[in-house]
Structures are given as C-alpha cells and as structure tokens.
C-alpha cells in the first residue's frame, strides 16, 4: 500500500516548522512517530500535500516537572514514558497506561502528543489525559503559544481544535496537589488504566482511565474517569466525577460511579464483543480502576 505523493520537509528548528505551517496551512501534516499517520496515509484516509518531519528538531523530547505540571514534549515516545521514573513517581494513571499502548516496537516510535492529536476514539492516551485534566500546548508563528484544556482540545472523533498553523509542542498534566506544596510529599493521589484487548497491539475492546486525589480529611478532592472505545469519542464521565468529589471513598460509592459510567457509554456490538458485554466491562473496570487509584492515593 502506498500513500499519495507528498512533499517531505525535515526542518532542524521549531521556527522553520512553524514557518511551513504558517505558509502551507491545512495541506500540512506533522510527522512525529507516524505510527497512526503513516498507516492512515497508506490507506489513503489521509493524503497531506506536505509532510513536516519534526524528528530533527532539538529539545522536543523531554519529560519534566515544573510550574505544577508534569510536561511531556512532542517527541516523547510511548516507551520513554514506560521507562520514565519521573512518570512512575508523578502520575500513576500514565504509568499504568503506557505499557498498554500498542506493542513494544510501535512504542519505540509513537508519541503521546501524536496520539492525542490523532484523537482516535479507540486511542488510550486521550482517555488518560481526560481523566488527569491535561492541557495541550500549541504554538504557531503568528499566534504564539496557546494552552488548550484537553476537554476543549478533543472536539470529536479524529477531530481536535488544533489550528492548521499550529503544532503541539507539549502536553501538560497537573501534578498531584499535595506535591505542589511539598516537593516530596506523599502523592495523596493515584490513577489507573484498565484495558481489555484481544492481543497485544490490538485496539482496546474497552479502556477505562481513572484518577483520584484525596484531601486532608481523606475525602476525594479530585476525580477523573474517562472511557476508550465505547463511545464515538473518548468519553469523560463528568457525572460520575461529580458524584465522587467531596465524598469519602467507599466500595459503595465506587460501585455507584461505575454504574454511571456504564450508563454513559454507547458501545457497538462487533467482533470484539456485544454492546451489553462491553458496557458491563466498563462497570467492572471503573470499579477496579477507582479501587486501584484509591490504593495509590492512600500509600
């Protein structure tokens, strides 16, 4: 399978990338890991006139903390996240999800930022980012930097609010609130990603991302739940989050939140399972994910 012909550019500075985007706009696609884009191009579902390979741009591949955020730059690969001690210490939902992204070889190239930009409703990272309340940072030559809450970034399946002249430079995830006051404080937060897949590398049959933080009284101060593969786009279950925040954690509470998640999704019956089955997996995974997140927060 071959894509349509395209112009290939591999600039060595971010400024040059932004120039190309400013001049060529919506005929351009950015190539980071290419593990979703290249298959789409081969199937001719995407046929960009220009491909801008950002892999030669320096200083775009770090994971860092600062200003209350864990920051993942545009060229950080899935496997960089799997192997990152910083992510393990800072964000349990991300650490839990990373080994479940595609397969070990794809993880060597694919990126978190690219996955979020692609916004495949069967993609895992967008759910994790929704549960954690991430922000996407985009830059353009004429508009400068724009910080976009993930809920405003992900507009619909395969669609985001990224403008044709913008590139994603990084994705930021808020640190656990306890860490923003005391650098080495216990996290008082936890997270998890539950994924059912038929085989390694397959899309999720069902995926559930959860994130919990506890206040001084042991009550839930922050909660995030988002679902993969069971709705036309990655689905943040706001109603269940509202139920959790302000309450003391309990099995009964988590069961109630899980029922809400089950009711919110609308999976299709397909070769991976019936709609009824998938909805029940959502319920079970939400309960398990919340319990695991709580265990992390109570360490």
């Amino acid at each position: 399978m071959y894509p349509r012909a395209f112009d290939y550019l591999a600039p060595e500075t971010k400024e040059e990338v932004l120039d190309v985007l400013a001049e060529r706009g919506d005929e351009v696609k950015i190539l980071a890991g290419g593990q979703s884009l290249i298959p789409m191009m081969k199937l001719r579902l995407a046929s960009p006139g220009t491909l801008v390979d950002i892999n030669r741009v320096p200083d775009l591949d770090s994971i860092s903390i600062g200003n209350g955020h864990l920051t993942v730059q545009a060229l950080v690969r899935h496997n960089d996240i799997v192997n990152s001690e910083l992510v393990t210490t800072e964000n349990a939902a991300m650490a839990s999800a990373a080994p479940w992204i595609s397969d070990p070889i794809v993880r060597n190239l694919g990126t978190l930022a690219g996955s979020v930009a692609h916004h495949d409703p069967e993609g895992d990272w967008a759910s994790v980012m929704l549960a954690c309340g991430a922000q996407v940072v985009a830059e353009s030559r004429d508009g400068g930097e724009r910080v976009i809450p993930i809920t405003e970034f992900l507009t619909d399946m395969f669609t985001t609010s990224l403008q044709p002249t913008e590139m994603i430079t990084e994705v930021r995830v808020p640190r656990y609130a306890s860490r923003t006051t005391h650098e080495h404080a216990p996290p008082r937060g936890g997270g998890n990603y539950q994924k059912l897949e038929r085989k390694v590398g397959d899309y999720a049959t069902v995926g559930v991302a959860t994130h919990l933080e506890l206040g001084d009284d042991g009550g839930i101060s922050k909660a995030g739940i988002a679902l993969t593969s069971v709705y036309p786009h990655n689905l943040k279950v706001t109603e269940a989050e509202h139920l959790l925040v302000g309450s003391q954690p309990s099995d009964e509470l988590f069961a109630e939140a899980a029922e809400i998640a089950k009711s919110a999704c609308t999976p299709a019956s397909d070769v991976r399972g019936s709609a009824e089955y998938k909805k029940d997996v959502v319920r079970v995974f939400t309960e398990r994910g919340l319990a695991a997140s709580l265990a992390g927060a109570q360490r």
Partner: peptide, 27 residues
C-alpha cells in the same frame, strides 16, 4: 501485513527496533 501489526519487517534504526513498513526511507 503491511499494516504495522505483524512485525516481520522489523529492523533496527539506530539500534532501536522499528516496523519498517511504517517508516519512510527519507526518515
């Protein structure tokens, strides 16, 4: 498979395994 699934096209790129059906030669 030519669709990034089977892995038989794996080569090492600067020492790292990649699926060469999902990388352009220019990269």
């Amino acid at each position: 498979c030519d669709t990034t699934a089977c892995g038989v096209c794996t080569v090492l790129l600067d020492g790292t395994p990649v699926k060469s059906c999902t990388v352009f030669a220019v990269q």
